[in-house]
């Protein structure tokens, strides 16, 4: 478990993270979203002891991260801008990881490289951007670290490779109880892979929840009634958003779907459709509830 308490970090006079608190469960995939410059990468760098924090504490499995060499054996970080030593092949890079990580699995790396069709003896500098990301990812996975931090790592990968990597990560999580923390400024990238999501805004975690409850707790309906109706007609429901165009209204409701359906059926609607919400929509409406205009956030 990762426990972050009152974390503050500033670059000169600019405060990037301010009294940030966050709990990340073990064996989950935690997605951290936020606008560009929200501090996602900074947070990951501080957790990985790359940057020094100004104040606050970070504990992983009850141990302080800072200057903890043993603990860092269980952490691996793949940054947004990748780095490979000049003229190194994938095998050379793997050997570097092997030298640094006690539980690095070289055989598994070769296996993954074969699956992803990556030549281990070709220079990484000759690879495409996507292939470089794959190299970094498989090196990180083969460290067998308990906590893996991916900073916008999946952004820009083609769907086939994304799916393949998701399967590899899922297998790894199953095998080692791994916890994955990944960031993106694109919700769609995280939607189908994360268990939990946290929104970083103005230096703090503004909102965090597990995806299942987010999606099941909120739904969109399209409804049309015979007579005239407005938002006040449905006072029994927790309405997050109400839009009416002509005789058809689109309503975002928070709460239990079955209960809402029974209430709405009492009005004998001409049309009553329950539509799924995208994660992006869920976040927009949750933010509105919290009093933030979405366009200011993401």
């Amino acid at each position: 478990m990762i426990k972050i308490a009152n974390l503050t970090k500033s670059y000169g006079k600019k405060i990037v993270l301010e009294n940030l608190n966050c709990h990340i469960k073990t064996n989950s995939i935690y997605g951290l979203i936020g606008a560009n410059g929200a501090g996602k990468s900074t947070l990951l760098r501080i957790i990985n002891d790359i940057f020094k924090r100004d104040s606050g504490s970070i504990e992983i499995d009850g141990k302080e991260v800072e200057n903890n060499q043993e603990l860092k054996q269980n952490l691996v970080f793949v940054p947004d801008d990748l780095y490979f030593f000049p003229n190194y092949t994938l095998m050379d890079m793997a050997k570097f990881y092997e030298a640094m990580y006690n539980h690095f699995d070289m055989a598994y790396l070769k296996e993954l490289a074969e699956i992803l069709k990556l030549d281990t003896n070709s220079k990484v500098s000759n690879f495409s951007k996507g292939m470089k990301r794959q190299c970094a990812l498989i090196c990180a996975i083969c460290t067998n670290a308990d906590y893996m931090f991916f900073d916008e790592t999946f952004d820009g990968l083609d769907p086939v490779i994304r799916n393949l990597l998701k399967k590899i990560i899922a297998k790894q999580m199953e095998k080692k109880n791994t916890t994955i923390i990944m960031t993106s400024h694109n919700l769609r990238e995280l939607e189908d892979i994360c268990d939990n999501l946290g929104l970083l805004y103005k230096g703090g975690i503004l909102f965090e929840s597990d995806i299942d409850s987010l999606k099941t707790n909120m739904f969109k309906i399209q409804i049309s009634l015979t007579g005239n109706f407005n938002k006040d007609t449905f006072q029994e429901l927790e309405i997050l958003n109400f839009k009416k165009i002509g005789s058809v209204a689109t309503i975002i409701i928070k709460g239990d779907q079955a209960k809402a359906e029974s209430i709405l059926k009492k009005f004998h609607p001409i049309i009553l459709d329950f539509l799924p919400l995208t994660l992006e929509e869920v976040f927009i409406y949750e933010m509105e509830v919290l009093g933030y205009a979405f366009n200011q956030v993401v």
Partner: peptide
């Protein structure tokens, strides 16, 4: 170099 700082300092080795 920012990228190499990320890479090396994320490794399990103290400063």
């Amino acid at each position: 170099k920012r990228t190499s700082v990320d890479f090396i300092n994320s490794m399990p080795i103290n400063r």
